[in-house]
């Protein structure tokens, strides 16, 4: 019997599911190997029985906590996909404001109907077997992870930086063009797609393990970035990781 795959979506734009749907040349081959039983972007059916769950989106309501726990109890393997699920992502900016303020701003007079919570990563709520980073995830990594899971090959998180991939691509460094980028401390795996097309890395794949924040802050300050600009670079996708420490670090290193 073919393993059953299910896709689930929490607070997110569902762009990661769309990436999977965009695998047009490979989807039929994937369906030879697996049965997809839950995939809101593609099918109407909703099954309760599945082996591998891909979960996108961050967890932001009491209801979502219950749902994601239910998924964990049913799935043999859970893979968090995308910046929202793995890092909190852009959604995590919510946590920089008082909860009531955010809730009233969005839902106005209906606010009391919508209970809300500070943003959490999927991994903060349930055990996650692997994290597939990016905003959105890459099709290449989805295929690699799916094939590895089906074959029982252990998955290894990527440890090299975006710079490694950007230099490998032979790009002119954005710093040489008077721009800035945090690819040096961001986890690779996207083939440095943004710098390759001329846009600085914003850190959507999360930081590498043991990132040198102090060094990166110093580099950005040396290029003339102000304290708020540096803070924005670090908190765009990675707010949850740095919320507690970033202000102190910036104060310490930016004169």
């Amino acid at each position: 019997m073919k393993p059953k795959l299910a896709m689930f979506s929490f607070t997110s734009c569902e762009g990661c599911q769309l990436q999977i749907l965009n695998l047009e040349d490979e989807l039929l081959s994937i369906l030879n190997a697996v049965e997809i039983v839950n995939f809101r972007e593609a099918i109407d059916e909703k099954a309760q029985d599945y082996d591998i769950a891909f979960v996108e989106g961050s967890i932001t309501t009491p209801e979502e906590i219950e749902e994601v726990k239910d998924i964990r109890s049913k799935a043999k393997l859970v893979v968090a996909i995308g910046a929202c699920a793995c890092l909190g992502g852009v959604n995590a900016m919510k946590n920089f404001f008082p909860l009531d303020f955010v809730r009233n701003e969005v839902y106005k007079e209906k606010a009391s109907c919508f209970p809300t919570l500070p943003v959490q990563r999927v991994g903060d709520v349930i055990k996650v077997d692997y994290e597939m980073h990016g905003c959105p995830i890459t099709k290449k990594e989805f295929l690699h992870v799916t094939k590895s899971l089906l074959l029982g090959i252990p998955l290894k998180q990527i440890h090299y930086s975006i710079c490694t991939e950007c230099k490998t691509a032979g790009n002119v460094c954005l710093f040489d063009k008077g721009e800035t980028c945090i690819g040096a401390i961001t986890r690779g795996g996207c083939d440095a797609i943004c710098p390759t097309f001329g846009d600085g890395c914003e850190g959507c794949r999360g930081f590498v393990d043991e990132p040198n924040f102090e060094g990166m802050i110093q580099v950005l300050a040396d290029r003339g970035l102000t304290k708020p600009e540096i803070k924005n670079k670090f908190t765009y996708f990675n707010g949850l990781d740095v919320i507690e420490t970033i202000n102190d670090k910036i104060e310490e290193f930016v004169k």
Binding site: I30, T168, C173
Partner: peptide
Amino acid sequence: AKCLSCGSCNIVCPTCYCFDVKDVVDIDL
């Protein structure tokens, strides 16, 4: 303390020869 461990120095070096090897399985597994 300054180094960001980004790896750029190695990648652009004309005498760095270290490489990592990985297997890529076809979609038919």
